[in-house]
Amino acid sequence: MEGIYAFCVGLMTACGIFLTLRGRTFSVVVGLTLLSYAVNLFLFASGRLKLDAAAVLGMSEDYGDPLPQALVLTAIVIGFAMTAFAVILAMRARADLGNDHVDGRIPQTKEEVRQKSGGQR
């Protein structure tokens, strides 16, 4: 089970990272969301995986580790605030700058640069 879990966390991290490296804001926001899922799962797993453990006291002898759970619970909520902030920032950037590129301007491709310099000549 742990192997599968680790594989999933790794895959989600990789997907998230790849998307954050894209050039458009929305992809970056989606990437960040994916990444925060992965991070939450990562933190949660530091308390080790347990099946059918008791959530509250007095139900069983075997408890899940409550500390990472408490940490991840707040992390989920804060993660939402961060995603919201990022996406609103993206909208604001689009509104103020007229495009949704992460740098606020569409970079010229090499052909465009070549054409421009050719035209000048």
Binding site: V9, L11, M12, A14, I17, F18, R22, S46
Partner: peptide, 29 residues
């Protein structure tokens, strides 16, 4: 390039969490 980077980081994260989960837990909980 980006695929390479993300695969590397994904691999590292997966390795770390796997190594972590398969080791005994000494918790303060």
């Amino acid at each position: 390039r980006d695929l390479g980077i993300s695969a590397m980081i994904g691999g590292i994260v997966g390795t770390v969490i796997y190594a972590l989960m398969t080791r005994p837990l000494d918790t303060i909980s």
